[in-house]
């Protein structure tokens, strides 16, 4: 009894705060917030904070070992007049557009192929995934050997076949180097596209193809009028991811060419690392990295609005 009596005045005095706290603890909306908090904290700490810090750094002249001061748009102005920066922008766009387009074409082709009934289907499907499973740096080292100026197996085979007379300087010549890193990126990126599109293909009901066959569609018309439109939502998602991954690629380039020869393969990501970390000019590196954001947002926006246009996916089903 006595404890009850003592607790009553305490509750009465702190009634407002206590009940607010109690309400926050049981309110459904707030409960959702509590559950999200750990994940949110994680994201804020490791994603939002570095992003914000990076953007802030791009407005300072910070170097490694020396805190910077705010310099406004100085870094960007400097980059605006820097031909190497513009070369890296060009390289990045070239790398992304060419590699993504080919990854899409080859991936779609492979997906259509793997979607057929054939012997050892599971085996081939898993084989296709191999390049994706191998760690990037490992496959980059393999490509490094394949592209080696002296020991390249490609050059060796072509010479033995009598098609060329001298080794191809895969990573030493600007255009060869660009082509080589794009090929390596395609090799690595195709499985992701192929397997995701294959998953999408398998959601298309076979009876739609049968109906189209009876309606008189040739196999090209079935692809054009059934497969392709039904696959567009997945194409949009997979190509958004593919473009984002390709645009921000770093490992492959760094392991193969470090941006060379003469910056011919420098992407914005590798240039940012070179300037920011290797050369220690954190502010400038951060500015290059920040300059990637508008491109990425544009890529996301295109696929987002592309996806929103499809009316047939909306509306409720009434069964």
């Amino acid at each position: 009894m006595s404890t009850l009596q003592t607790s009553v005045p305490v509750q009465a005095s702190g009634a407002d705060t206590l009940s607010l706290w109690a309400r926050l603890r049981v309110n459904r909306n707030w409960i959702a917030l509590w559950f999200m908090l750990p994940a949110a904290a994680f994201l804020i700490l490791f994603l939002a904070y570095p992003l914000g810090l990076g953007i802030w750094m791009s407005f300072t002249d910070e170097r490694i070992g020396r805190p910077g001061i705010f310099v406004g748009l100085d870094n960007y102005q400097w980059l605006w007049d820097d031909s190497i920066f513009w070369l890296s922008v060009f390289n990045t766009l070239l790398y992304t557009i060419v590699a993504s387009a080919i990854k899409f074409a080859v991936g779609l082709y492979l997906a259509l192929l793997l979607n057929r009934n054939m012997p050892f289907k599971a085996f081939f499907r898993s084989i296709v995934l191999l390049p994706f499973i191998v760690p990037t740096v490992l496959s980059a080292i393999a490509f490094w050997w394949i592209y080696d100026a002296q020991f390249s197996i490609i050059s060796w085979s072509l010479i033995k076949l009598g098609l060329i007379e001298h080794n191809i300087n895969f990573l030493g010549d600007a255009n060869w180097a660009r082509g080589s890193v794009i090929f390596a990126n395609i090799w690595r990126g195709v499985p992701f596209v192929a397997i995701t599109l294959l998953a999408g293909l398998q959601t298309v009901s076979p009876s739609l193809y049968e109906a189209a066959t009876l309606d008189g569609a040739t196999s090209w018309q079935r692809f054009r009028h059934i497969t392709y439109p039904l696959l567009t939502p997945i194409i949009a998602v997979v190509m958004t991811f593919s473009v984002l991954f390709t645009f921000t690629d770093f490992q492959l380039i760094w392991a193969l060419t470090r941006g060379g020869p003469v910056n011919a393969t420098h992407l914005m990501a590798t240039l940012s690392y070179q300037r920011g970390i290797i050369s220690g000019r954190l502010g400038e590196g951060a500015a290059i990295a920040t300059a990637m954001i508008p491109f990425l947002l544009a890529a996301i926006a295109i696929s987002w609005f592309g996806m929103q246009r499809r009316k047939w996916q909306q509306g409720s089903s009434n069964d």
């Binding site: 009901s205 009876s207 739609l208 049968e210 109906a211 189209a212 009028h225 059934i226 439109p229 039904l230 499809r310 047939w312």
Partner: peptide, 10 residues
């Protein structure tokens, strides 16, 4: 067809 096989995007 039993499941009608209507083209969902048309």
């Amino acid at each position: 067809f039993q499941n009608y096989a209507l083209y969902p995007h048309m």
